[in-house]
Design a protein around this nucleic acid. Structure first.
Lengths: 190, 190
DNA sequence: ACCTGAACACCGTTCAAGT
DNA sequence: ACCTGAACACCGTTCAAGT
């Protein structure tokens, strides 16, 4: 049976879920697919591009939100965080793909957030930066949260000093900071 | 001559500056130091820890700022960004070390920002999150900026679509979003 | 068009043995 | 105490050759 891009990405995703990003190698993926490592390079130019396709698979569940701009920002960020938390090292993988410019879905999400910023009254030359700032927050927060969750699941007694509050509430609080900041920059208020 | 931790970190930093993080390997570093690769493991438990030491070296120039809380936040962020931009892949390296919890200086910076948030009137159970949110922004923004700069220096015609504005002004604008958001959460106003 | 097999040029980490 | 040398178990990528 011939190898399809879809098969490759599916198996890569399950490898990611089971063993994490550090063990997601081209050679191991090829072995899992019963194919030689070189075969993957017929379908993908390099590993970065393959990881970008996995990132897009992870981000598939994201759909455009409706409502006023703060609702749309909150919904988009919540969807993004949920998608990242659904896969081992999801935040790390998507961050890397964003940095490499290899995720098309991420580009669409950025555009969605920039449009919301525009509706908030942010000047057009700044909407992209506002969108990126929101994304930096979601990726940073979720990468942190996920590494703690995974450490924890691995049986370590993570310091619970002041980390007692519900992660959802913490996430919402940090996001509120950003939406309040955006509102302060708008011509019309929230 | 005996190998000292300082020598190792110094040479690692110059290797980083000259060839980037992808080429900063334990074996290459050992070669540069005229030592076997195994020797490094007498001084550092693993690569992550060594990279943490390099991160701390990069962050050495950071000093506690003075002034009212928004001034301290701005100064700290400006210092951080400057330090990151002074070394090839600086933002990427420090981000990784922060995630791994291997940078002591980063812990100190976080504490500084949390204190500023406290002065802004943020409730004590949220100051750490506010500090982290600011750090996510600086690291995200600077990693973006640096990858564009380095792509550019490598001779590529990066799309200059709406990217025309001064990076310093863009950085300040995004940071303003955050400080405005913090001010909105304070009991006392800015 | 799609894939294999072998090669190239590397990795991080460990550890017995040496000085 | 500090380091070497060799080994273990891997990497990403290329490319002539096969079907």
């Amino acid at each position: 049976m011939q190898l399809s891009k879809r098969d490759v990405v599916d198996v890569a995703t399950s490898l990611l879920d089971d063993y994490g990003i550090a063990d997601l190698s081209m050679r191991r993926l090829a072995r899992e697919l019963n194919v030689s490592a070189g075969a993957l390079y017929w379908h993908f130019a390099n590993k970065q591009q393959l990881l970008g396709a996995v990132a897009d698979r992870i981000l598939q569940p994201l759909t455009p939100a409706s409502g006023n701009w703060p609702e749309r920002v909150r919904a988009t960020c919540a969807q993004l965080r949920d998608a990242l938390l659904s896969h081992t090292d999801g935040a790390e993988l998507v961050s890397a793909s964003l940095a490499a410019g290899q995720s098309e879905v991420m580009t669409a999400v950025l555009a969605r957030l920039a449009a919301a910023a525009g509706d908030a009254g942010v000047a057009s030359e700044h909407t992209d930066l506002v969108a990126r700032t929101v994304i930096y927050y979601v990726l940073g927060f979720t990468a942190d949260e996920q590494s703690r969750l995974q450490w924890d699941a691995a049986g370590a007694e993570v310091d619970t000093t002041v980390w007692t509050e519900d992660p959802n509430a913490r996430f919402a609080f940090g996001l509120r900071l950003l939406t309040d900041g955006i509102a302060a920059h708008s011509r019309t208020g929230s």
